[in-house]
Structure formats: C-alpha cells, structure tokens
Design a binder for these strands. Structure first.
Length: 550
RNA sequence: UGCCGGAUUGUGUAAGGGUAGCACGACAGACUCUGACUCUGUUUGUCUGGGUUCAAAUCCUAGUCCGGCAACCA
C-alpha cells in the first residue's frame, strides 16, 4: 500500500507537524465487530494507514466493541482475516475498546464528581420528549439536579447490577438548548445485562460510543482521529469529553466523505439484508462489495487500494463509478495474468481436411507482451470447439468472425474456412464443418488475401469441462443508496447479476488451478477459480469490447 | 422556520488571487494472430446573482441546491 499523493488530511497533518502541535502521528481504524468489512472500510483503512505511514507514525487497529448485544467474535475473526489479506499491518498494535472499560468508568465517576454528569431516571420515550426537536430546544431532565453523592451512589449501584436494563442512564451535563442534538445532555452510560464477547459478565453498564471513543483515542495517543462525515456533528461532544476529562494530549477528529459506488450498497444494514433474504450467496458472494466478496470474486488488494487512492479523499458527497474499480483490476491483471483459453458456449467444428487421429501442438505464449512468462503447448486436432458467438449464419455489418464460406484465424494455428453448417430441425446451429489452410501455420496466406478475425479454439479431445460464472452489477440502478428506504429493493436487483454457464470447455493447463490464481481467458475476461465450489471459474471482470453491433 | 458540512466537465479529484490540470468515460483514428492492451487526437467544467481587485474557482455578500443530525447504535 503506497502513500503516494496527498489530500486535505495530509495538509492538516503537515500543518500540525510544522507548528509543533504533534510530533508522532498515530491513527487508528476502529471497526465495530458487528459485520463484515467492505470496500468502504478499505477506504478508511487506507486513509488511516497511509497517513501514518507517510509521516513515519503508527497505525492502530481497534475493535470498537462497546455494545455487547451487537458484537461477536465471528466478526473479530473476519476483520482480522480481511486486514491480513489487505496487508494493512497495525504497526501501532491491536486494541479493543472494551479493554478501556475500567478507565471509562473511572472517568465517568470523575465527571459526576465534577458535576458534569448525572444519573437520569427518564424512560426512553420521556427522554425523547425532553430532547426537543431540530428546531425547538429541549428541556432539562427533572433528575438533573441530583447531588454528587446521590449520583455517585446511583451510578455505583448501576454498575453493581441493582437496576434493570433501561431503568437508569448516566448523562453528561451540557446544554439542552444546544442547536446540536448531540450536546443535549447525551447519554454516556447505559445498563445492558448481556454477555460481552470479550469481557464476559464483568459489566452490566456500557459506555456509549460518543463517550468511549475519545477516551480510547486519548489513551492510545491517537493524534488524528479520522472518520466519516456522519460524525461531524459529534465532534463538539468528542472535544467536550476530551476537555472535561482533562487529557493533556488532545486527539482531534477530522471527517472525510465515505465511499459510495454506483450499482451497489455499502451500508451494513442492507448488506445484511441481501444475505438474510438469500438474494446473494452469503457475505462472500462475489457480487458483494464486502472484502471477502471481492476476494472471492478475484480482486486483489493492490487493485482495491489503487482504486481508492486514485479516487481521492475529500469532504464532498460523491458516488464513485464502479466501472473505475473494474478498470483498476483489469489494468493490473493485464500485466500479471497468464493467458488461457476457455470456451463459454462451445460449438463443434470438424476439420474435414485434417487427418483423423492426428494431434499436433502449438506453442502459445502465456502473455503476448511478456515472453519471459513462457509458453505452453496447446494440442490441435481434427475436431475442435470454438465459441458459439464467433459464428454467424449470415454476414452482419461489422462482424469479423466466422460465417459460412468465410475465413477466420484460429489463434496461434491455421486459418479456418467454414464449408458447411449443420443445423437442427429448428434451425439451430449444431456444428460446423470446415477446412484449414495448412500453409498458414505461423504464416499469412501466401496469396496475400486478408483474413481479419482471430478466434480462440480448443481441441475437443484434449479439453476439460468447467463451469463459468459471470457477475454483473447487483442492482440495476446507478444510485441505490437513496432508493432503499421502503425496504423492498427486490425490484432494483439486477436479474442478470449472476449468469451461470454450465457446459464450458477449458484447456488442460487450467486443471487444478489454485485459489488466488488469476487468468485472462483470451478474448473474454479475467477469471479465478471459485474458492467455494470446485470446477467453477468466477469472472473477475470482462475484457472491454469496442464491437458495437448495429 | 434549527444546526453542521459541501458544491470544479458525464464521474471522481487537483489548483486556494495570476494559462482551470489529471484519471476514468465518451467520440474519432492508428496498431493488432485477443474487437483486449498500446498509441494519437477531440469533446465537455469552476452552482447563481452582486461586490473587492489590473486579475476571482480561490476573498466578501446574498441566494440556490445537495448531504448529515432528534438510538439507552457505531
């Protein structure tokens, strides 16, 4: 992961460094272990990781696990796996927000003693009423004037488990008339009698994010706490906590725009829904924007970071073109992927002028522009398969493939002429007959005639069976982020987001292709073996085509 | 009718008083035993109105539009 380029966050860091406000940069990635990481998480990782790296600082991973009912070890493991895969090493260490619960508790008591927090008995409904609205100020809780002693006693009894969930909360004393809702005496501790994935039953009171996060940042010596725009309104509260607890070294929060992409959703809520409704084949479905989905699809961490890096960082609401992500993986794979032949919809061709039982071998380059990547030999025989779409019964404007009586180059082999079309009763093409020009092995036709098209082929005797899965946009609308409010997004699901081809043929060299290997299937796209199902190749991305049928 | 942000070509992002640049896309052409890759060229932009200035995307001002905020979620 390179730290090339710059953005407004780097400008801030450079100014802080220059003015001597900070010396050692420390950033952090604070995922809540309540779901799988997605490409938007990768953006947050990249921003934090590269900011620290560029300025010689540290990058922490911190599981933000302050709510026991939502979090799970399963997600801790998946986050770890995804981070490993990305190669985002937490140079500053791995932490858990819940490991700071003792500290949080201590600071909460301090706030009480400083008359900056009180125990409130209001129910959730009541609190909502007291809070006011966006345009009207709230009013003070009737419990706001409890004495320090009473508050301390009550808070300790909350901790001791004397009260039921929701019976009491600890609230910061700030300002019920603040235009910022977050400052209207926000709850900082609530009672939850639940088993915590890491703390077990040690606690029955848990700090809220707004209280815990600045504390965690301060304790870890985070200098720049980078998060997405939605937390912008929380910054005053973040600063309030830091100031009122009295940390000497103050971390500062800065916000950037989260990643949105066309034709997909990024919120955990909707991703979960896609999984739960079985719209997709799990969190790692290759159509999902999750990191495990992208991994299974065949994307590389480098392509993902290239995409994020080149997309830039700003505070402007934006919608990244998912075609650009595809461009980034193709750009990389064009350089690195070995070329192979696979045929999605095979059409048999019998070469009538080629001896029965004869097999000859053609050396095919593994990469057209990189001879150092070697060659493999491809057997050729009297019966071959070609791609059904490379044949047309009639000449079509702009079509430069095989037609009856026409010629086409068999890639790396001879020029083939179609001499006969065998059709079924309904006119469907069953197979072809043809002849090859034996003079054209490694040669252009001697009579100088021009043969424009080149198609790929496979010897019927020597190929293996396989299945190919092509993936397209999950949604049929560019912007689905705003269209899902009514919860029935089924009508926006692209029915062709997964297309399975059952009876495909592939060259022998593809047999036993391993997890994580990526190939270019010539004239088709980039593919990788599926990690879940044997004998299946997933299409990572198609090759571009400038062929536009009229 | 509240508060906080934001607005630069189709998309994303630079330039922060001095020639609006880059990438992707689109279009046109060259090359090609992958209609890929590569190469060449073209196109389109500073939200609007005022103001300051020799000079404004940039500063001021008034609007407009967009995003976020009323969990004991993060």
């Amino acid at each position: 992961m390179e730290e090339s380029g710059s953005n407004f966050i780097h400008d801030i860091i450079e100014a802080d460094l220059k003015e001597g406000r900070v010396t050692n940069i420390v950033t952090r990635f604070p995922p809540e272990p309540n779901g799988y990481l997605h490409i938007g998480s990768a953006k947050a990782i990249w921003i934090n990781y590269t900011a620290a790296k560029k300025y010689g600082g540290k990058f922490n991973l911190r599981y933000d696990d302050t709510n026991p009912v939502k979090e799970d070890d399963e997600f801790v493991r998946s986050i770890e796996e995804d981070l490993n895969w990305l190669g985002a090493v937490p140079t500053g260490g791995i932490f858990y927000g819940s490991d700071y619960f003792d500290k949080c508790y201590e600071f909460a008591e301090k706030l009480i003693m400083d008359k900056k927090a009180f125990v409130c008995d209001l129910t959730q409904e009541q609190m909502s009423e007291y809070r006011g609205t966006l345009t009207e100020p709230g009013k003070d809780s009737p419990y706001k004037n409890r004495s320090v002693e009473e508050n301390l006693d009550l808070f300790r009894r909350m901790k001791a488990g004397e009260f039921a969930d929701g019976e009491k909360t600890l609230r910061a004393i700030i300002d019920m008339s603040s235009p910022n809702m977050n400052m209207r005496d926000p709850v900082i501790y609530r009672i939850i009698h639940a088993n915590h994935h890491r703390q077990g039953n040690k606690w029955c009171i848990y700090p809220m994010y707004d209280f815990a996060h600045p504390i965690q940042d301060a304790l870890e010596g985070i200098t720049h706490s980078l998060c997405s725009i939605e937390f912008e309104n929380h910054r005053p509260l973040y600063d309030w906590v830091i100031d009122n607890i009295g940390f000497e070294q103050k971390p500062h929060q800065y916000e950037f725009a989260r990643l949105n992409m066309t034709y997909t959703v990024m919120s955990k809520r909707y991703l979960r829904k896609l999984v739960e409704t079985k719209t997709v084949d799990g969190w790692d479905d290759p159509r999902m924007p999750t990191l495990c989905g992208l991994r299974r699809r065949g994307y590389t961490p480098s392509a993902i970071f290239e995409f994020i890096s080149r997309s830039g960082v700003s505070k402007t609401y934006s919608m990244a073109d998912s075609g650009f992500l595809e461009y980034c993986i193709c750009e990389e794979l064009n350089e690195t992927a070995l070329r192979r032949i696979a045929i999605k919809e095979p059409l048999k061709v019998i070469i009538t002028n080629y001896p029965e039982g004869k097999t000859e071998y053609f050396e095919m380059p593994n990469h057209p522009k990189k001879p150092e990547l070697g060659t493999r030999s491809l057997p050729f025989g009297r019966e071959i398969y070609i791609e059904r779409s490379d044949f047309e019964k009639e000449q079509i404007l702009g079509f430069i493939r095989l037609i009856p009586g026409g010629e086409v180059r068999l890639m790396g082999a001879y020029i083939l002429k179609c001499t006969n079309v065998i059709c079924g009763a309904d006119g469907e093409v069953l197979s072809l007959e043809g002849t090859v020009d034996l003079e054209t092995r490694n040669n252009k036709p001697i009579d100088g005639r021009k043969v424009k098209g080149t198609i790929h082929w496979l010897s019927l005797q020597h190929c293996i069976d396989t299945q190919i899965r092509e993936y397209n946009h999950l949604f049929n609308r560019e912007n689905v982020a705003n269209l899902l409010e009514d919860d029935n997004f089924n009508e926006f699901i692209n029915p062709d987001s997964l297309v399975i081809y059952e009876n495909c043929k592939a060259e022998k060299a593809l047999e036993g292709a391993k997890d994580g290997e990526r190939f270019q299937f010539v004239r088709s796209g980039y593919f990788t073996p599926d990690s879940k199902y044997n004998g299946v190749f997933n299409r990572i991305a198609p090759l571009k085509s400038s062929y536009k049928p009229e």
